[in-house]
C-alpha cells in the first residue's frame, strides 16, 4: 500500500524539486541531493528524467551521480550509518567498530545495505568529530566515543522503534 502512494508522491516531489531549482543545470547536485532524500537512492529512470528536464545529457547526470560518494544508484537503508575512519578514529580503533557492526547487520565490504532496507553501513574519511573518536553518524546524528557494545545498543533501539512503528 505504501508503495502506491509513495511512487506517486515521489514523482510529484521530483518535479517540485526541479521546478524549485528552475531546471537550472548548475543546480544539478542540489537536485540530486533532494531527490535522493525522496527515494533514498537515485533510480535510473529518474536520473534520465532529470537529465531531460534540465536539458543535459544522461551521461553527464550519471557522471555527476557517480562522482560523489553520497549519491547512490542502488537503494539505501532508511538509516545510513557512517563509521568515521579518519585519522583520529582510526588511531582509536574504528576498525573494530566496522567489524562489529558488519557482523551485527550481516553485511560485508561489498554488501552495504541490509535486505530489509533498514540500514546502510558506510565508512567515511572524517566527520569532524575527532575529539570524540571513534565516532559514528546515523543519518544526521553524531554519536561519539562509540564502542562496539554501545553501537549495538543504538542499533537495537532503532530496530525496536521501527518495529513499534510498523505495528501501529
Amino acid at each position: 500500500m505504501s508503495d502506491i502512494k509513495s511512487l506517486n508522491r515521489n514523482f510529484l516531489k521530483v518535479n517540485e524539486i526541479i521546478e524549485a531549482h528552475h531546471s537550472d543545470p548548475s543546480e544539478l547536485i542540489s537536485i540530486l541531493q533532494e531527490v535522493q532524500e525522496e527515494y533514498r537512492y537515485l533510480p535510473e529512470e529518474i536520473l534520465n528524467y532529470i537529465a531531460m528536464a534540465v536539458h543535459i545529457s544522461p551521461s553527464k547526470v550519471f557522471g555527476v551521480a557517480t562522482f560523489y560518494e553520497n549519491f547512490s544508484l542502488a537503494p539505501k537503508g532508511k538509516y545510513i550509518i557512517r563509521i568515521c575512519d579518519g585519522t583520529a578514529c582510526h588511531v582509536r580503533k574504528s576498525t573494530e567498530l566496522i567489524v562489529a557492526l558488519r557482523k551485527k547487520l550481516g553485511l560485508t565490504e561489498n554488501k552495504d545495505t541490509t535486505d530489509d532496507l533498514l540500514f546502510t553501513l558506510q565508512t567515511v574519511s572524517c566527520i569532524g568529530a575527532c575529539g570524540l573518536a571513534p565516532a559514528i553518524m546515523i543519518n544526521e546524528e553524531v554519536h561519539g566515543k562509540v564502542t562496539p557494545e554501545k553501537a549495538e545498543m543504538i542499533l537495537e533501539e532503532i530496530i525496536k522503534r521501527e518495529r513499534v512503528n510498523n505495528e501501529q
Binding site: 548548475s26 543546480e27 547536485i29 557522471g63 555527476v64 567515511v124
Partner: peptide
C-alpha cells in the same frame, strides 16, 4: 549555501567551483 556531496577533492579551488556549477568536482 551549497552542500557538498562527498568528495575530498572539492576542497581544491577549481574542483570546488566546478562542483558548485553542478559538475564533477574535477
Amino acid at each position: 549555501i551549497n552542500k557538498g556531496a562527498g568528495a575530498f577533492v572539492c576542497g581544491e579551488g577549481s574542483a570546488l567551483t566546478s562542483s558548485i556549477e553542478g559538475n564533477r568536482g574535477m
